[in-house]
Nucleic acid binder design. Structure first.
Lengths: 197, 197
DNA sequence: ACCTGAACACCGTTCAAGT
DNA sequence: ACCTGAACACCGTTCAAGT
């Protein structure tokens, strides 16, 4: 009806941006390329997104949502010990980062504060890990243990993606070994038994 | 003597680049700003560096060298157990990353392969950790344990720098707790005693 | 209401011209 | 031998003009 019916909308832009970033890397990404891929000119994008930073923030929110979904799916299924559940989550986390390395790095490794997704989404990310960690190490150390395990998983994946593990070896099994070692370490409370009242 | 005596050299450029990146962030860094800070025009820089990527690679090499030096200094001194030594190294590593967050992130968290320093320097980085890890967990698991502990340290520091630990708390003591837990976990071999031949 | 061309200030990089 | 101005292709962003 209107002289110029919308050719793109917010979701199309965010999804195509994610695809382009994943396909060609963040360094090659520009609004001009994105517009071309959408069959439109760069200035038109500003009718739907406020800025490049806002667009990347939306991409990051999408990434966090998908990672949370993958983690939730991974811990489902009966007949698993808490440790097995946590290992499955870690495996799914790493698989996600390997499948979408550019998007993962943009969401979690970028230092620019402008690109961070809503803190609310970060909370929801941590929730599945939170409950299991608490079951494993008790309430007192659960936040610290949660952060330690997240740090291990994130750090391992990022060092892999940044090509910092130069000496080869089976990184998949090294990863699982490291997660299991970390869990064992947290299960052994450093505080002496006399602390218990 | 010559009509245009050199006003800048390679080291001046690399050092000033590092200062600018640390002071204003990588996003604000450009060759034009760098040239201005050096009292020169941007094209002149190309007499001393091949490209912006090569310059950033040199900055990263410098960062790695300084981190290695900080780690070596931290483990010195007599009368320390291997665990204490490793904890001291971890503390120094984190302090370095907090002191030069932009340079650290550029050297270790950037996914662009163009910016990676020589693999040789990465080897030298890992050496101080290597020997201590071997003393702690034995030769068989030493590479895996090394990678796990590095991943934990790197991941913790990067999540801090990226502002991902939203719920506050004493992150310094959480960090040490996590490192100690990780060490404990690796010290408890998962393989059963019957493996020993 | 949405899209576009033209424009602005800014990039990295090249190169002929100056001294 | 080193530095510079001018130029090129490319950015992100704004805005008046078209339909």
């Amino acid at each position: 009806m209107s002289p110029h019916p919308a050719q793109v909308d917010h979701d199309m832009i965010v999804n195509k941006a994610r695809d382009l970033i994943e396909a060609e890397g963040l360094g090659e990404f520009s609004l001009a390329r994105l517009a071309t891929a959408l069959g439109v000119k760069a200035p038109s994008l500003y009718k739907h997104v406020a800025s490049k930073a806002a667009l990347l923030r939306a991409v990051n929110t999408l990434t966090v949502e998908q990672l949370v979904a993958a983690m939730r799916a991974a811990q489902e299924g009966a007949g698993k010990t808490p440790v097995q559940r946590l290992v499955e989550i870690a495996r799914a986390y790493r698989l996600f980062a390997h499948t979408y390395p550019a998007a993962y790095a943009l969401a979690f490794a970028d230092v620019e504060p402008e690109l961070r997704p809503d803190p609310q989404y970060l909370e929801s990310l941590v929730l599945p890990l939170q409950a299991i960690t608490e079951a494993l190490v008790g309430q007192e150390h659960s936040l610290a243990a949660l952060r330690g395990i997240w740090a291990l998983i994130h750090g391992f994946v990022m060092l892999e993606l940044a090509g910092q593990f130069q000496r080869g070896g089976d990184l998949s099994s090294t990863f699982i070994q490291a997660v299991e070692a970390c869990i064992r370490g947290w299960q052994i409370s450093r505080t002496s038994p006399s602390d218990v009242t």
